[in-house]
Amino acid sequence: MNILTDVNRSDRAPRAACTSPVIEVRRLRKWYPVRRSMLSSLLGVGEQRYLRAVDDVSFAVHPGEVLGLAGESGCGKSTTGMTVLKLHAPSGGEILFDGADLATLTGRGPLRDFRRNAQIVFQNPYEALNPRFTVLRSVLEPISIHFPDRRTEYEALARLAMERAGLLPAENFMHRYPHEMSGGQLQRVAIARAIAVEPRFLVADEPVSMLDVSIRAGILNLLKSFAETLNMGILFISHDLSTMRHICTRIAVMYLGRIVEIGPTDQILDDPRHPYSQALVAAAPVMRRGTRRRIHLEGAVPNPANLPSGCRFHPRCPKAIDRCRTDDPQLHAAGERREAACHLVA
């Protein structure tokens, strides 16, 4: 997007060839306790069970990279996004920002620094913005919180963020209220607000699924350009693999709280190795008819509060063998820069 490069006045160092991750999570967990019946909690019998929304998830996002987190509803992809940002308290595991574990960061300073550097764009822009705030006020809010000593620059920073988000010219939008704008414009306001504090890591949770096809591309290209020109690391959460083809550098496929496969976008989409990724890729409709082979999956996604033994996917897997019913497969190397959690993938 040339609009962006024109206004790109970032003084940040150019992208290094080999960088350390901006965010890394190791064995991240988010378990929700399942309510027990009154009788068993009164008597203190039966053990506390958990809904394992995110269960030992590990990945890293590098600067300039868009990592896609794909999966069906309920697989834990949004919970992962919220937990990585510490909007949900993790039940276990580590979150490393610039190599430092967030759990060990104490005091307001370091955590506030993380809050500024890690931002989020939500799915529904109609609900993400305060209807009683003008656009300018929405964009100014994070700036005034995170840059308290740069008061004189506030409006310039807000203007820059709006221009970077493609709201051109910024003056035309600053004094509008959300109800005066279209969904695509609102999503750009939400993006402007997120990037106004110059974050290095952005979580985009289904940022285009509420928008019409003709304007989706603009938002996607915008996010991609942030990775490319501002060197931002982006975690792009979506159920739509077709969209990921065009924006993501790498894709992680989630099923029932676990990453089952992770690797470079084209490799995952052209040659998925895990049977679940294969089914997911095969289910996406394509423009050229007759070029797609359907895979039939049995049943539905099981209840995450009552997980199957062994591999979580085995009850639906067309290729399951005996070992899958007892042994829980871990992510292991499956080709160059690729990992899969399947006993059948060597």
Binding site: S182, A217, L220, N221, R245, H246, L269, M287, R288
Partner: peptide
């Protein structure tokens, strides 16, 4: 034509998505 260029297709590698300006 605009819709076709804006629509992401899983089978289509490396194509640039183009949005239709305005509403």
């Amino acid at each position: 034509m605009g819709l076709c260029n804006a629509f992401p297709d899983l089978a289509d590698r490396g194509r640039e998505l183009i949005s239709i300006p305005k509403a």
